[in-house]
């Protein structure tokens, strides 16, 4: 039996599962990036700063819970189906975005913020021109992490009806059929690496060169 057999003979199935995987990923991940950024920003506003550490601790605990457990938990409440899968992926990949956005912002040197205030920047200007831009490397690593975690977890989410390439992999594992396993493993690995590379390029474009040497106080 040849490794590529299943892949070649059933390429329509593989393509269909791949596009399923991509769609589930894109929906859940973009939601977690948007909402994660929003929450990360909200909890670092002046009035909310009492809760920043609480949320950071909470999300670092959440990150230590295996994704399988989260998926099963969401299943308990919402049953089987695509929406359940998307929701559990959204929850799980939300955490790194919140964590990195918030920690990136609160770790900015306080004097820089104070100078920005002293120069007459409004709260909004400080957020968009100073805080987010300086925290961008950290935020980006959260977003990339979130994408990679999402794609991996989406594979597992096949077991609660998420569809995608996980279906192929688990079928292959269940039948101990190397050719089927491979037909799922190859595209999902390529997908993960591609998405991460695209984000890496985007990061390089968007992050200021001035932040590359952030060691040493400025």
């Amino acid at each position: 039996m040849n490794l590529f057999d299943y892949l070649f003979n059933n390429y329509q199935i593989v393509l269909q599962r791949t596009s399923e995987h991509i769609i589930v990923f894109l929906i859940s991940w973009s939601a977690s990036v948007l909402i994660g950024l929003l929450i990360g920003i909200l909890i670092t506003r002046e009035k909310m700063q009492k809760y920043t550490n609480f949320v950071l601790t909470l999300s670092s605990i959440a990150q230590s819970i295996p994704s399988v457990a989260i998926i099963a938990l969401v299943f308990l409440f919402f049953g089987i189906g695509k929406l359940t899968a998307i929701f559990s992926l959204f929850i799980y990949s939300l955490v790194p975005v919140i964590f990195n956005t918030a920690s990136g912002i609160i770790n900015i040197d306080k004097t820089i913020i104070e100078v920005a205030e002293g120069m007459g920047m409004s709260k909004k200007e400080i957020l968009f021109k100073v805080e987010l831009l300086i925290a961008l490397p950290t935020i980006f690593s959260g977003i990339r992490n979130s994408a990679v975690i999402n794609i991996a977890t989406a594979t597992v989410a096949a077991v609660i009806g998420g569809g995608g390439l996980g279906v192929i992999i688990f079928t292959g594992l269940a039948h101990y059929n190397v050719s089927i396993i491979f037909a799922g493993v190859l595209p999902v690995s390529i997908l993960a690496i591609t998405i991460d590379s695209i984000l890496a390029i985007l990061e390089k474009k968007l992050v200021s060169k001035g932040l590359l040497y952030e060691e040493g106080k400025l």
Binding site: D109, T111, I112, E114, V115, A116, E117, G118, M119, G120, M121, S122, V130, L133, I134, L136, S208, G210, L211, E214, K217, L218
Partner: peptide, 22 residues
């Protein structure tokens, strides 16, 4: 407040240059 500050130059020991700006 914002207008006031824009009319006042402010320099501190830590300088506080924006690291992401040229």
């Amino acid at each position: 407040k914002i207008e006031l500050r824009r009319k006042i130059g402010y320099v501190i020991q830590e300088i506080g240059l924006f690291p992401h700006y040229t």
